[in-house]
């Protein structure tokens, strides 16, 4: 469902900003690579009025590879590929008779792939680095599966995100810290509404910077200029006009000089047409310094 795909994109790109995904660039020949599993299971969602309504229990599990690699001192290449995605819905049964009313279904396939470039607008080593990122969303996933076409492992549309990131690393006493922010526009096709995205992230480095903890605020505001069920009869435009504000907490632990593991939990505390349940991700990363 579209709302899930939106949430997925946000989480997938919310890698630790100090290592990747923020305004900082990897030097030429260096990079950050992460294999992660993201999932959410929800039985309620935010409706178009922002209130909560129930839905059949739905799960999405995505196995993704994120890579950010420096090809120039001011240019990084980005890839965020959902190598495998599973979207399922539970059976619906009668509590009175246990009769199966609507059989559950699942869709398994490759998900969407995001390709991007990040350009350093500020000089390398700047105290407040600023970067611009262009992301192209390649619709390699399946936008409509199952007998009701209500299962998705991708949104089926080619979108383009233009984003500006800025941030700063500093010391809080003897503790390393950073603060970063971003804002961007997501231009979407096939009747999906354009979006304004923004976020804020604060992180602390502990245990001689072997342990990083961070908190992130992410938001999407829909322009609500796309198709609705009234203007299109296709079921491919599921839950267009999704928007939310979410809070995430992430931990990254270096278990060697370059290798580390990460864990993330996020949840929308305000939204429209979006899952109302926490999402989680765990992963392993390699930080080529």
């Amino acid at each position: 469902m579209k709302k899930l795909t939106v949430l997925f994109v946000v989480i997938a790109f919310s890698t630790h900003a100090l290592f990747a995904g923020g305004p900082w660039l990897k030097p030429k020949g260096k990079g950050y690579y992460k294999l992660s599993e993201w999932w959410t299971v929800f039985d309620q969602h935010y409706t178009d009025t922002g209130l909560l309504d129930p839905n059949v229990t739905t799960g999405i599990f995505n196995t993704s590879l994120y890579a950010e690699h420096g090809i120039h001192k001011r240019l990084n290449l980005l890839v965020n590929a959902t190598l495998f995605s599973r979207n399922y819905m539970n059976n619906v049964r009668s509590r009175t008779t246990d009769e199966l009313i609507i059989p559950g279904e699942a869709l398994n396939s490759v998900g969407d792939i995001d390709l991007g470039v990040k350009y350093g607008l500020s000089k390398p080593g700047s105290k407040i680095p600023i970067s611009a990122t262009l992301i192209l969303g390649i619709p390699t996933g399946t936008p409509a599966g199952g007998t009701q076409n209500n299962l998705q492992t991708g949104d089926g549309e080619f979108n383009q995100i233009l984003q500006i990131d800025a941030g700063s690393g500093f010391q809080l006493g003897k503790t390393s810290a950073y603060l970063s922010a971003y804002a961007g526009i997501n231009n979407r096709t096939k009747g999906f509404s354009e979006e304004f995205r923004y976020g804020l992230e604060f992180g602390l480095g502990l245990l001689k910077n072997k342990l990083w903890i961070s908190s992130k605020l992410n938001a999407i505001e829909s322009f609500k200029n796309g198709f609705t069920a009234e203007t299109v009869t296709s079921t491919s435009v599921f839950a267009n006009n999704a928007e939310f504000t979410s809070l995430a907490f992430e931990t990254n632990v270096f278990i060697s000089k370059n290798f580390g593991v990460s864990a993330n939990a996020a949840g929308a505390f305000r939204g429209e047409i979006i899952a109302a349940a926490p999402s989680y991700s765990v992963g392993v990363f390699y930080d080529l310094k």
Partner: peptide, 25 residues
């Protein structure tokens, strides 16, 4: 770490099975 992650992901996938929701009908 990679082995641990693969193991953890395998456990996660056990949760990705279709189960039952009930409606009060």
């Amino acid at each position: 770490a990679l082995k641990l992650s693969v193991g953890f992901v395998s456990i996660l996938w056990l949760q990705a099975c279709i189960s039952d929701d009930y409606i009060d009908d």
